[in-house]
């Protein structure tokens, strides 16, 4: 392939091949979006309640007991978290399939036939992501431990952020490697991962990912601007329905944009692997 950006162009066109399946992903995204909205609204309520309790009992936030928290919503919140987590596992499973299709040069979008398989793939995907975020988490934890020492704290935080970035770059190739061989072990086969990346060239590899991320961000920011314009316009014309309108707009955004972007990103990741092993 002549240039890096052909992969990106191909990835951007890819989700249009089958709009129905894209909408399927979109519905999953909408569920997560709704849960996070409800969560935000609930958080406001709970914060209000906690402040009320604090005012009544003269306590400070640190010595408030768990039993003094409003308990009715806790179970609901936990249930919603669990549902959201499971749905996001499905989305990850779908991304797994997209990468797989991309590596195998299939031009159609993966279907939703094999629910259980999708879930298992999602768990694998999630595990790899989790393991790769462990180093930065440990460093961030160290930073919290030494938080009294202000200068040391910031240095460790910077190291943690750098670790996140480095791990993320390796993570993409690791996921590709795992998906291509369909085995969890291959995600931690560092020599093969390094071989793949140096096969493509580190500069080209990092450049491709950075370019993809930039395109991803531009799309998101642009759509965000459009959507916030729409929200403001509708909220100004219809009285007293601002929350409902913003929820509707964010559902539309999740249905089309979030799903599109995630499929696009996975597709490009798969193409990178395809280029690397060629």
């Amino acid at each position: 392939m002549a240039s890096i950006t052909d992969c990106v162009v191909e990835g951007l066109k890819y989700p249009f091949n089958d709009i129905k399946k894209l909408l399927g992903v979109g519905i999953l995204c909408v569920i997560i979006d709704l849960i996070s909205i409800v969560f935000t609204i609930k958080t406001v309520d709970v914060t209000k309640m906690i402040i009320g309790t604090l005012e009544k009992t003269n306590a400070t936030g640190f010595n408030l007991n768990f039993s003094q928290l409003p308990n009715g919503d806790i179970y609901l919140a936990i249930a919603m978290l669990v549902v959201g987590f499971i749905v996001s596992l499905f989305i990850m499973g779908y991304q797994y399939d997209v990468v797989n299709f991309s590596i195998n040069r299939k031009d159609d979008l993966p279907g939703f036939g094999d629910i259980v398989g999708m879930f298992i793939k999602g768990v694998k995907y999630f595990l790899v992501c989790l393991v790769y975020s462990i180093p930065s988490m440990i460093v961030a934890f160290l930073a919290i431990l030494v938080s009294n020492n202000s200068s040391l704290w910031s240095v460790i935080m910077v190291i943690s952020v750098l670790l996140i970035i480095i791990c993320y770059f390796i993570l993409i190739m690791a996921l590709n490697n795992m998906i291509a061989h369909d085995s969890l072990k291959k995600a931690f086969d560092f020599s093969e991962i390094r071989g793949n990346i140096s096969n493509l060239g580190w500069v080209k590899y990092i450049g491709t990912i950075l370019f993809t991320v930039i395109v991803f961000m531009i799309i998101n920011i642009a759509i965000g601007i459009v959507m916030s314009f729409l929200t403001v316009i509708f909220a100004a014309t219809i009285n007293n329905q601002a929350i409902v309108i913003s929820i509707v707009i964010s559902v539309i955004e999740a249905l089309f944009v979030t799903s599109y972007c995630s499929v696009f990103f996975s597709r490009v990741c798969g193409s990178i692997y395809r280029e690397a092993v060629k």
Binding site: T5, V8, V9, L12, K13, I214, V215
Partner: peptide, 10 residues
């Protein structure tokens, strides 16, 4: 338009 957009980003 899509490849035009990507070219523009470049």
């Amino acid at each position: 338009l899509i490849s035009m957009f990507v070219d523009g980003v470049k």
